[in-house]
């Protein structure tokens, strides 16, 4: 079922978001907010041998934000860190069969969250090797 301007895919992810939650011993955590609307996303990733083996999220936000978060976690699982860094918000929106124009920015949150989480992971790696 599509609702108003949202595609069936968006609604599907909104109603049954994948990978909700937290990772206890996460390799990296990325938290981003959208100042325009006050929405917020927190992403946890688990990295093993350069590959993202698990991803979990929590999001406070609109339908598009929740669906984008859910879709993103699906997209990055199994990818290398380098590959995940290349994921754009357009790719997330496309995977959701598109978002309404005013809602494109909601998928930006997803792109930024994965960048932040990986940054956090790399930082932690550096600290480890620095020790």
């Amino acid at each position: 079922m599509s609702i108003g301007p949202y595609s069936q895919k968006v609604m599907e992810h909104f109603m049954n978001p994948r990978n909700v939650g937290e990772i206890e011993d996460a390799s990296g955590v990325g938290e981003v907010g959208n100042p325009a609307c006050g929405d917020m996303m927190r992403l946890y990733i688990k990295v093993e041998d350069g590959i993202i083996t698990d991803a979990k999220f929590r999001t406070f936000g609109c339908g598009a934000a929740i669906a984008s978060s859910s879709m993103l976690t699906e997209m990055i699982k199994g990818k290398t860190v380098e590959e995940a860094l290349k994921i754009t918000n357009e790719a997330v929106a496309e995977a959701l069969d598109g978002l309404p124009p005013a809602k494109i920015h909601c998928s930006v949150m997803a792109e930024e969250a994965v960048k932040k989480a990986i940054e956090d992971y790399l930082q932690k790696q550096k600290e480890k090797t620095g020790e």
Partner: peptide, 12 residues
């Protein structure tokens, strides 16, 4: 909600 009432907004 800005989010819903402006779903038809042209841009953010």
């Amino acid at each position: 909600s800005a989010c819903s009432s402006n779903l038809k907004a042209k841009d953010e």
